[in-house]
Structures are given as structure tokens and as C-alpha cells.
Design a protein around this nucleic acid. Sequence first.
DNA 1: AATGTCTTCAACCGCCACCGA
DNA 2: GTCGGTGGCGGTTGAAGACAT
Length: 210
Amino acid sequence: MAKTPCCERMGMRKGPWSAEEDHILISYVQTYGHGNWRALPKQAGLLRCGKSCRLRWINYLRPDIKRGKFSKEEEDSILKLHEILGNKWSAIAAKLPGRTDNEVKNFWHTHLKKRVQKNKVHNANITSFSYTLQEAQTSDASSSVGEKIVISNYGLVASSKDPSVVGTEFCNAISCDDTLGENMDNHGSCQISEEMEFWYSVFIKSGQTS
DNA sequence: AATGTCTTCAACCGCCACCGA
DNA sequence: GTCGGTGGCGGTTGAAGACAT
């Protein structure tokens, strides 16, 4: 059986705060401070649990909260700090004056996460499977030693010998409007050559990486 | 205008660390 | 050492608004 939350057990109010509740909380904290969050609601005359009061104050009512859109600088800071700290939202928020951990967390999930994931996929596709053909791999007359090919982890392939040959799977994976290296600019034909399929299978079998 | 779907973000929940008894 | 109370944190939810059909 699910555990009954403390607020419900004690007959406390839940959900969005009213303007009146906000006013009571602000007045109380400004006058007496918040020594003990558990005791505060009773002393202030609020039908909320201490946790709820603390959260409301920290995330919304504090006078030093900076509201509104995140600036480009803040955005960059979050990206950099997240790379270093991971999901340590309070540590990240501490580096951004006026921002709360909740705000940073929400902003990450709604704006930055998708962008970071997209970049990771893009970079993985471009860099993970790049080969230069060796002599032993060029028995096919149409291939040549030193020819550079790129294989995405979704499928195929681009070739330095023939930049117009790009695997359709590859195009789908990265979207054709993405900016690629100069040898992969031409996505128009999006054809998979038999030769490329052949080398793809050779490389997969031999497990080579660049 | 009505309805469905998606996005945003305030608020909640459960867990953990810390501290004093 | 351990137990209960408390504050703080990260993950998740769901209501409300925005947008698409």
C-alpha cells in the first residue's frame, strides 16, 4: 500500500499557493526569520507543511530571486557546469546568482538536455567510424589505398573518393540540414553503393576503428 | 470554435546526510 | 552505536497555457 504523504496525513493544504498564503509566509519570514521550517506553518498560521513552506520561500518568494528568461551567459554556464558536475543542480545554481536549483533543473530538462543529446549523436556519427583503407582491404578494383570513408553507427557511409555517396541511413540519423565536413556536403543523391556496403561489412567483421 | 497534443514549470515525493539526545 | 527530527536534494508529476489540427 502506498505511503500517505505527511501533508495529507496532517490535514495540510496541497497544490498551488494563493496570494494570501504567500503574503502570510513573506510577512512571517521577514519578521521572525525561518529558524525551524517544521514549526513555522503553525506559528505563522498556515495550513501547509514545513517542507512546502521552505520550497515556496526558496524557489519563489525570496527577495533575491532573479526571475525571467535565462541569459546566453547563464545558459553557457549551465552547460559548462553540468559537464563538470553532472545533475548537481544546487551546486550549479550556487554559481548563478538569483537562480534556484529547481529553476536550473527545469531549464535543463526543457531546453538544454535535448540540444546536448542532439550534439552528442551528431558528433558520435561523424567521429566514431572513420577509416582509411589499407592495402589488404582494396582487392576490389574500384577502391584505393588511402581512401577515407566514414561510417555512422546507424549504417553507412561517405567516401573521400566520391563525396556524393552518402548512406541514406546516415542522412536520416543526422538530418540532411546539419553542417558536415566538406566531403559530405552533397547529400542530394543519398545512395548506398555496393562497394561501401562491402567495406562496411569488412570493417564490422574485423572490428577496426580509426 | 472545438478538440487534441505538447511544453513548461511550480510543487510534491522519497531519500539521504547531518546533528543532537 | 542508534534513533528521531530536520533540512536539503534530485527525480517526477500534473495543471495550465500554448500551439496544432
